[in-house]
Write a protein that binds this DNA or RNA. Structure first.
Length: 614
RNA sequence: UGCCCGAUAGUGUAACGGUAGCACAAGUGACUCUGAAUCACUUUGUCAUGGUUCAAAUCCAUGUCGGGCAGCCA
């Protein structure tokens, strides 16, 4: 049994923030019987670390307050959205919340759409969530042993509400609060004015209700080409908030939609669709990022104007996560992928959730980070060191220790018999008392890492040096007797003697030796392709000057062949490894039988390199 | 010259009128068969100016600085 598989590395402190304070107060006041949040990504790209914060916030609130968090595709723009993204989003959300807020996810029966009913004499649309399991979202039966607990559930889709939303638009028209406008996109822009200059009313603003109704129906029927007409809210062209200057509610788009097919040729805009989607699902707290703050009056205006019979949702905004040395903008991420600056959406250098997963970072580490950064309205850059700390903290507890040599330097133990092989005991994980041990072979010819020998040692260097002693982890203390070089003066081999009584547990094994290094038996070592990943960008704010591509780290990936202890031949996809004194690694999906491919997740902290820099 | 939002150590975040705390980072030392981990210690902070108050990071006013908003994107 592999141990250290599921250490509890979840941060235990209870998060508190201004949004949770509001939720707690609402609960105390009895304002809502149950808290209901939602996570509403647009399927136009892969989820990234910023979304992880939002997921942790929305699902975390559901978790802390006994609520539900709906997963919803905010898919109102058919020209940008794709099924590939829908699927990746489901997979990433499932992975992130699994074993944490697994049972808080609000889903719906497959194919179900809102039911129309009468509430207090008013037409109403409602689609209540069914509490599912994150595993319901699993698209692959890959794991074999995991059966789809409930294959009949799926995420919510804003596009499932196109009928009710259309109906609500009709209601707005009937109330004289919306009109069909014939202005071109360009004219609409001009009429809107500017933040410091009032707009001008559209000449089509005062059409009769009948005419508006007729025109809107004909828009839906496909009588008009894209961009020729739109449905607009009738609010106030002189409003200081530009989003209240008769914002568009519907545009004509003769386009195939990934979820609704060719049923529609008009599509509601975000502002109209989002508040109504929240209402239809019975959301209580609609949490979004700061840039939507100026949209909140419109969110409220639409729901108020409709005089809806059930309690209305309210919007709250927080500052999104911006980690240093990363790019978190869907537009720019898509650029990196399309221009092949990275290998794909799941490139381990990318801050996408799928990239993070492939890198070997666990969901728990990501969560600890995303929760730990806190929730405020202050826009800030989070030091990547905080993320790296969360990764190391988690991996330190769960990773199996292994010996592997990244840049091999041959060592021959000249006083050790040629044909002798010893099996030495090695601890799997000193952090895990039940981690157990394994055997590693020792023989006359070994590899050590080139970094662990210096012919002319730097001050305070206490690894191997000519005539110096060093301890081989789990094995003997050796002394460097001879340095062998090639014609160019490169060190090719070290000839050493071992203190044969100093084997771990042996008579002289207690001798004070400052340095301990890792090694592998040359004859028994297995080769592995090792991908050494580093930060994708060389500067803390890659896009500060608007030219992030200029700051791509040319050394963000180095591929080498490492010599690994033989037990690594049996490396498993879910396991995490620490190559002692080096870094954390995980098996990459490119591995095949007989071909090991390992990703470096993150290096160990390295006080020596810091010393060298001084 | 418009509206909205924000400002607490280097970074992020608490303190909800009553001792400015935590994490990361940085530094020093201890320990170490991982220069890791762990442990101990240390440095550094309320944007400014007024006001209210016995008492202000917190309330008020003014200012300064930073951010967002003028897609038929979300």
């Amino acid at each position: 049994m592999p141990t250290g598989d599921n250490p509890e590395t979840e941060t235990s402190k209870v998060p508190s923030d201004f949004i949770r304070d509001i939720v707690a107060q609402h609960l105390a006041e009895g304002k809502y019987p149950q808290i209901h949040t939602r996570f509403p990504p647009e399927p136009n790209g892969y989820l990234h670390i910023g979304h992880a914060k939002s997921i942790c916030l929305n699902f975390g609130i559901a978790r802390d307050f006994g609520g539900i968090c709906n997963l919803r595709m905010d898919d109102t723009n058919p020209t940008k959205e794709e099924v590939e993204y829908v699927e990746s989003i489901q997979k990433d959300v499932q992975w992130l919340i699994s074993d944490w807020a697994d049972d808080k996810i609000g889903l719906k029966p497959k194919g179900e759409t809102p039911e129309q009913k009468d509430v207090n004499g008013k037409t109403d649309f409602h689609l209540p969530a069914k509490v599912g399991q994150a595993s319901c979202l699993s698209l692959e039966s890959a794991d074999g042993d995991r059966q789809d607990a409930s294959p009949t559930l799926e995420p919510f889709y804003a596009s499932d509400y196109f009928d009710p939303i259309f109906e609500y638009a009709l209601q707005l028209i009937r109330k004289g609060k919306a009109y069909v406008c014939d202005l071109s996109p360009k004219d609409t822009d001009e009429y809107r004015g500017a933040p410091d200059r009032p707009g001008k009313e559209s000449p089509w603003r005062n059409r009769s209700i009948e005419e508006n109704l007729d025109l809107f129906q004909r828009m839906r029927a496909g009588e008009f080409p894209d961009g020729t007409r739109s449905l607009r809210a009738k609010i106030d062209m002189a409003a200081p908030n530009v989003w209240l200057r008769d914002p568009l509610l519907y545009r004509i788009r003769h386009a195939e939609h990934h979820h609704t097919g060719s049923k529609w040729c008009i599509y509601p805009l975000y502002d109209f669709a989002h508040c109504l989607s929240d209402y239809i699902e019975g959301i209580t707290h609609s949490i979004c990022t700061l840039e939507f703050e100026v949209h909140r009056p419109l969110y409220d205006w639409i729901l108020e104007s409709l005089e809806l019979p059930r309690p209305r949702p309210h919007q709250y905004e927080f500052a999104k996560l911006i980690p240093s040395y990363m790019i978190v903008s869907k537009r720019k991420l898509i650029q990196l992928v399309n221009e092949k600056l990275v290998t794909g959406w799941d490139d381990p250098r990318l801050p996408t959730i799928s990239g993070i997963r492939r890198r070997g970072i666990t969901a728990q580490a990501l969560r600890n980070f995303a929760i730990g950064v806190g929730v405020t309205k202050y826009i800030s850059v989070t030091d990547i060191a905080v993320f790296e700390h969360a990764i190391r903290e988690d991996l330190n507890k769960r990773a199996l220790r292994r010996l592997a040599v990244l840049r091999p330097l041959k060592v021959v133990i000249i006083n050790y018999p040629e044909d002798k092989i010893e099996e030495l005991d090695a601890t799997n994980n000193p952090e895990d008392p039940n981690g157990g041990t394994r055997k590693i072979p020792f023989s006359r010819e070994l590899y050590i890492d080139a970094d662990d020998f210096m012919e002319v040692p730097a001050p305070k260097y206490f690894r191997l040096k000519p005539d110096g002693e060093v301890r081989l982890k789990y094995a003997y203390i050796i002394k460097c007797e001879e340095v062998v070089k090639d014609a160019d003066g490169n060190v090719t081999e070290l000839r050493c003697t071992a203190d044969l009584d100093s084997k771990s547990g042996g008579a002289t094994s207690g001798r004070k030796i400052k340095g301990t290094i890792h090694w592998v038996s040359a004859e028994h070592a297995v080769d592995a392709e090792v991908r050494l990943y580093d930060r994708l960008f060389t500067v803390p704010e890659p896009d500060a000057d608007g030219d992030f591509k200029k700051h791509i780290n040319p050394n963000s990936l180095q591929v080498i062949t490492a010599k690994c202890e033989p037990s690594l031949a049996g490396a498993k996809p879910g396991e995490r490894y620490q190559f002692e004194r080096l870094a954390y690694f995980c098996l990459d999906q490119d591995s095949a039988p007989g071909k090991l491919v390992l990703n470096r997740t993150i290096t160990l902290k390295d006080a020596w390199s810091k010393e060298v820099r001084k």
